[in-house]
Design a protein around this nucleic acid. Sequence first.
DNA 1: CGTATTTGACCTGCGC
DNA 2: GCGCAGGTCAAATACG
Length: 505
Amino acid sequence: MVREDKVMQIDLSLKLDSQDEEEEEEEKEEEEREESVDNQEGKEHHKDGRGEAEERSEGDDTSLDKPLQENSKKEELSALQMEMDRMKEENKLLRKVVEQTTKDYYDLQTKLAVIQQNDAKKDLQMFLSLHGDADTTDQVSKQVLKFVENDNSSAQQLPSEADDGEDGDLGLSLSMGAGVQQHGRDESKEAEMKSEEPVQNKFLKSELAGITSHYSPNPPNRKARVSVRARCEAPTMNDGCQWRKYGQKVAKGNPCPRAYYRCTVAPGCPVRKQVQRCLEDMSILITTYEGTHNHPLPVGATAMASTTSSAATFMLLSRSNSGALTSDGIISDAQTPISYRIPHSISPSPHSSTTISSIVNTNDHSKGIVLDLTNNSQQQFSHPTSSHSSQPQLTYRYHNAAGTIVNLGGDLSSSDHQFISPRGIIIDKRGWKAEEDKSLTENVSAITSDPKFRVAVAAAITSFINTESTTTVQPKGPPLILRDGETAGSSSSSNKWVVESPHLW
DNA sequence: CGTATTTGACCTGCGC
DNA sequence: GCGCAGGTCAAATACG
């Protein structure tokens, strides 16, 4: 969007320039014409005066054609002049319109920046609210926000860092900037921080040890990764960005070669992606994105970029949330993932589902988050159609090493190991005592009410639908509608959760 | 001829 | 320290 806007801006400027030039030329021509007209008129006046005198003196020698011609010329000139005036006014109007449009564009840009800033703050607030009781959270969030603001201002003081690829113009890095990615962002900055030990940093180390500890296992050079699983016949998914292949490797355990791509929309963009076919289902393409674009994205690329970015933010939340559950960051069953199901809203389709699963293994953060846009997960477990269908439902799933989702609870509607909580959340009694932790359900609501997450999911679906429509013909279902409370999120540090929207197709 | 892709070599991190 | 695997580089090649 921004890129197009910039193009538009350039186009506008070009048009303005050309218009200006044209207008200048016109004005010059006009002036010349006016001068010539004046001269002619002067001459004519002079002529007229002289002519009258001559006429008077010379009598009827001259023919009557000349005055007629002069009159017609005069009329022609006046008409031209009027036409010119009219065009001038038209040009003025057009210029005003263009100026107004440009002004509106800048206004919108400014507003967008403000909104993005607010969103980042909101994310952080929510992320903190997931951590503990409201009183301390409020204080902590204020302090952390202060820290983030301070950090942002310091970042602004270092314009050279803009090349690092984070916190791009679009703000698609979202709150990741305050968390995971910022660690990989600038090692020198970290060193600087260490040497200076700002108050906020001290605060973070002391009071937010529980939070920071979740990031610290990540080496500074390791960026958050977001994988997208989608059915795609084409060798790569068309996500709107321009990519250049720079390598290919056969990874162990999967005979399908893994291709490495680099973003070429802007030189020096740090974003990379890996593309590999799923071993279990060759029609599934696993695309792993790494890094944040440091440039405005093409229109078609913003959906996927914002989706992956939001997913990464979600991963951040999941990590932080896990810390609130147990002291060691591991819920009772470390091997048990949690999935959050987005139930039907309109015309439920039993054959459709989309999962967003986060593989946030404490042992392997590099695996990152997985947006599962395949619709096969529905085959793996039944979808409850009880009266609770309008409520978030929490189910367990297991992700094997290959990322395949396997339902642990069997038939959810009849499993002895599950019960429906008063809030409509299916809880697997074997794996997780969610009922004991009411704050988690609160957290679920907190995340489900995050419009950004819903937008992200919608964007993912939209992007995927667009992709699919260009590659394979698939039946399209009703448009995605995500209402408050329909999505659900949060995670245990058992590190794998799934957000599923069965009604998407 | 310029650009994109391929592919073997090289680098790096990690486990033993 | 060594070997393995993942990731990247860069020369060769293909393509428009």
